[in-house]
Design a protein around this nucleic acid. Sequence first.
DNA 1: GACCAGATGAAATCGAGATGAAAAAGGGAG
DNA 2: CTCCCTTTTTCATCTCGATTTCATCTGGTC
Lengths: 231, 231
Amino acid sequence: MRILLVEDEADLGLAIKQVLVSEKYVVDWVADGNQAWLCLEAQWTDYTVAIFDWMLPGVSGLELCQRLRSHHNPLPVLMLTALGQAENRVTGLDAGADDYLVKPFVMEELLARLRALQRRSPQLQSPTLSAGAFSLDHANNALQVNQESQTAQTIPLTVKEFQVLAYLMQNPGRIIPGSKIRQQLWDIDEEPISNVVAAQMRLLRRKLASHNCECPIETVPGQGYRFIVQS
Amino acid sequence: MRILLVEDEADLGLAIKQVLVSEKYVVDWVADGNQAWLCLEAQWTDYTVAIFDWMLPGVSGLELCQRLRSHHNPLPVLMLTALGQAENRVTGLDAGADDYLVKPFVMEELLARLRALQRRSPQLQSPTLSAGAFSLDHANNALQVNQESQTAQTIPLTVKEFQVLAYLMQNPGRIIPGSKIRQQLWDIDEEPISNVVAAQMRLLRRKLASHNCECPIETVPGQGYRFIVQS
DNA sequence: GACCAGATGAAATCGAGATGAAAAAGGGAG
DNA sequence: CTCCCTTTTTCATCTCGATTTCATCTGGTC
């Protein structure tokens, strides 16, 4: 869900970020290795994948990767490298990168690689995520509902709504603290006194209600939110 | 159950405390070695584990550790140390630390280490704690009851209720003085003239009763409370 | 009967989350 | 670039559950 992108070329960085965002990932894009390390150090944000450019001002992508591994951090890493540095491939994989992509590349390829990483690490965006009577349709940005009492229906979602649902549905039945949700889905520098999460929950619940669909998101007072899977 | 966290970096300290609290530990977080020592000296609070940052204003984590051991206090200690001080590892373990974690680290790792310490010292949070017909479901914040007369049921708990039950269930059949429970589960600066414990017991008993489940907590007049395990 | 720990119920406190409206940010289309 | 519409965030309350306090009982002890 949350990706750390480290790329110093502004154009490319922006382009990648946009594509990823349009795929509904939450993206932190930083331009140099030192900032990247700061992000990684900030334990309170768990990234799902990292994308490192090989050449970077400050700490290089390669070194970031090595540092991660020396801390036993299993974060999947996709390395970007310029043409002509192909011989680095072995070095990169040795350093602990999980995959490797030569610039220039088509965005489709990047997405495909990310999807491939997903197979190893169970967290990533899956094309359709289901829980109980609900399933998320990634392609159409929508939620499919199959309640016995109703005819099946499709509810269109906004990006944030989709992200929230996806996060909860990855841990069906488990209580997720609101603070955790904010860490995962919102930008990190937020002042902690913000009720974005509550607000989003309200929008989501209201939308589901307007489609007269009973909301599968339960609030556990003082502890967090939970996606209910009725047995 | 109760953890002493000594960490002077505000961000990190807060982050760690939040994670631990969300795992339902009771956490005392202090920022310097002197305060930490005050907490440790106050014997009336038995900590289950201590987490010391190596570098601290005042007394260092290392020294705290040594002092503890020189007082023959076996409290399990997890030491946090910054990258580059890795050579200190031996020193740390010599000083009596039980484990050792290099910053930065993933919270998962911290929790894993705590769980590891648990194996040596029998007190820590276990994923599910059972006694007699009852078992605590840590993930769902609930109590599972399997009384022969009834069908199995799940009773949702509040955080405090959970903590109280967990504490009693760790010592099934043993009488625990109410004062001890207060020391373990409530903040230390409380005025001793408070019946929070009794109040909480009442709530707990009432809740169990409302699920028509006979309460496994017995009051031993003048001595304390006991979790009954019927044979 | 005085005394004490603990039990009890009602009431006060506290904080997290819910809410509705309004402001701000984005994103096209022209 | 500007206008318009949608999405997202903020703000200022409001509500409700969790927890604590308070004042009062109860049961047993000395």
